[in-house]
């Protein structure tokens, strides 16, 4: 039975169950313990499992993420919370040089059951250093898996699947999704962790999006429906690997692709999605794929400008209309 729950609560529940089920699982990060996590994701776990299982770290991102790598080498399942993706930049050595490469360099003889949870994206006027979307930086690293859940249901399951995997998985959360409510049915069998989901059927064009933008895309699709344009919405759920089959099947039906991403346009995630689908669906396309993305500018603090630098529902509707109307 599904119950209504917030995104952060779904993550919290998953972590609680993981900690209870497997003593190899432990959490570490800044203010995850006593404080309960800056987005409440680890609330209550410190009291329940104690400081060895839920560890407050100093502000030393590179080293505590590296610690996670070391612990994973001996078969533990560390869940590292990096407070926001912006600080993950300080831990890129641990993520890219260590987590993604050590098992390979050891000839495949070592496990890397490391999970890195980190929120990102443009929230509300946090200014340029705190509004980044760095999915492209991580997508380009072989050896990493990246999931981008957009609903409480996916957050719950994809986090569980990530922690139980022996490969390093980055769970990219969005700062504005934590307080979104949605159904959670822990009994419903989950799809494979990296499978995309068609959230809405439509014949006129395919909207491919992920994380918060997947929700905006669905909202836009409803609006387009009222205007007589039926958009199919594919929620990627994963950025590495990408479920090309689900996307390509949709584009082959609709012949038109609009990729919606909050990431900056230039060399962003959308570039990979558009290129990958163009390769796969070239002869099915009735128009060049369109990428609706963040402007190539650091995020301004001013709220009005901030909103203008990333796609809004209105923009998705406008872009979709343009794409469908092209040539008529």
């Amino acid at each position: 039975m599904a119950e209504k729950i917030r995104y952060w609560q779904a993550l919290n529940r998953a972590l609680d169950e993981l900690l209870a089920a497997d003593e190899n699982v432990f959490i570490l990060g800044e203010d995850v313990g006593l404080y309960g996590g800056s987005y409440r994701v680890t609330e209550g776990l410190y009291a329940k499992y104690g400081e060895w299982r839920v560890r407050d770290t100093p502000i030393s991102e590179d080293s505590f993420t590296g610690l996670g790598v070391g612990a994973a080498l001996m078969g533990l399942r560390p869940v590292v919370e990096i407070m926001t993706i912006n600080f993950a930049l300080l831990a890129l050595d641990a993520i890219i040089n260590l987590a993604a490469k050590v098992p390979f360099m050891a000839g495949g003889r070592l496990p890397m059951g490391l999970t890195i949870r980190t929120p990102g994206g443009v929230a509300r006027q946090l200014a340029a250093q705190h509004s980044q979307r760095l999915e492209h930086t991580l997508m380009n690293v072989p050896g990493l898996r990246i999931v981008v859940p957009s609903t409480p249901q996916d957050a719950y399951w994809q986090l569980k699947q990530a922690v139980l995997s022996d490969e390093p998985v980055v769970v990219l959360e969005h700062e504005l999704l934590y307080f979104h409510e949605g159904p959670l049915d822990p009994a419903a069998p989950p799809p494979p962790p990296h499978r995309a989901i068609v959230r809405r059927r439509g014949r006129d064009l395919t909207l491919v999006a992920y994380s918060k933008m997947a929700l905006l895309a669905q909202e836009a699709a409803e609006r387009l429906g009222e205007q007589g344009i039926e958009a199919e919405v594919v929620d990627l759920r994963s950025l590495s690997p990408i479920d090309w089959n689900t996307c390509a099947a949709s584009v082959a039906r609709t012949h038109r692709l609009l990729v919606v991403e909050e990431d900056c346009r230039f060399a962003g995630a959308g570039a990979e999605i558009a290129a990958g689908l163009t390769e796969r669906c070239f002869t099915r396309l009735e128009a060049a794929p369109m990428r609706l993305a963040g402007l190539d500018i650091p995020t301004p603090y001013n709220g009005t400008l901030e909103a203008r630098t990333i796609p809004q529902v209105d923009d998705i509707v406008a872009a979709a209309r343009k794409l469908v109307k092209e040539g008529s």
Partner: peptide, 24 residues
Amino acid sequence: QKAPEPAAPETAVSPVVAAALEPR
């Protein structure tokens, strides 16, 4: 947030949409 004004459809194009259309 003040989302860009839901301007008259098709006429005023927001900066992100303009960027999406630019290379076409």
